[in-house]
Design a protein around this nucleic acid. Structure first.
Lengths: 124, 124
DNA sequence: CCGCATCCAAAAGGATACTG
DNA sequence: CAGTATCCTTTTGGATGCGG
């Protein structure tokens, strides 16, 4: 919420790094982009094709944010037409392990979650 | 996004369990509630006091979602005034490990991220 | 005490048109 | 090709009042 973030900014510290981080990669697209870049550096248009239902606007925005956080690098080749290549940085690489654990959990527990959901929905 | 979710619903499968899961715990409050419940089962009002800047509406909503997914249990004691106790289920417990890894990463890498951000902001 | 319903503001995100 | 700018819709969440 606003208040907490404002407090943090004023204090210059982070009351909850977990929240801060999950807020970054937990948004709609960051994770997908990172996982896509895991396959190797790629151009803007390649990413767009690889993630069909992302809008150009959101792809740009997401890449900027990841670049800002130092997770992704951006290399511009000013030719005509221009060419921009994105890649995962070392810092970004370090995310793969914890993300992998989360992903594995998601895959493993999905049946349980879906079952729980079904049961809950039938009772309500 | 809408289209993907609709497709998934029709197909009855999940094209991206990672997204689905992170969408759940990556929202504004779920993680905080889970971590708070880690300290032991608690009443609604206790949770509200423990997480001061959550609104009643959001706490209720978050708890419902977690209950629906089978991560949290809800026990009503119909006294006057009523009493409702929430606790983490076994399934919820299993989240602690991957969450812990993410949290550790967040804590470890936060300095790097903040440095990258600073540098980026100065250049733009 | 718990939580639902309503209303409203803010933020996120999609569609489209335009630029170097 | 790789964006930026604008407009508009959807989603999120806070505030408040009511009910069991």
């Amino acid at each position: 919420m606003k208040k907490r973030e404002e407090i943090e900014k004023k204090l210059g510290l982070n009351l909850c790094p977990i929240r801060t981080v999950l807020a970054q990669i937990g948004d709609k697209w960051s994770l997908l982009v990172i996982l896509q870049l895991r396959a190797g550096g790629q151009r803007f248009s390649q990413l767009q094709r690889a993630i069909p239902d992302i809008s150009q606007r959101m792809l740009t925005q997401t890449l900027r944010k990841l670049e800002r956080d130092g997770l992704v690098s951006r290399k511009v080749t000013p030719s005509t037409p221009p060419r921009v290549d994105y890649a995962i940085t070392a810092l970004g690489q370090s995310l793969f392990e914890p993300i992998g654990a989360m992903a594995q959990w998601a895959i493993d527990k999905q049946p349980d979650i879906l079952k729980a959901r079904d049961q809950f929905d039938r009772q309500h």
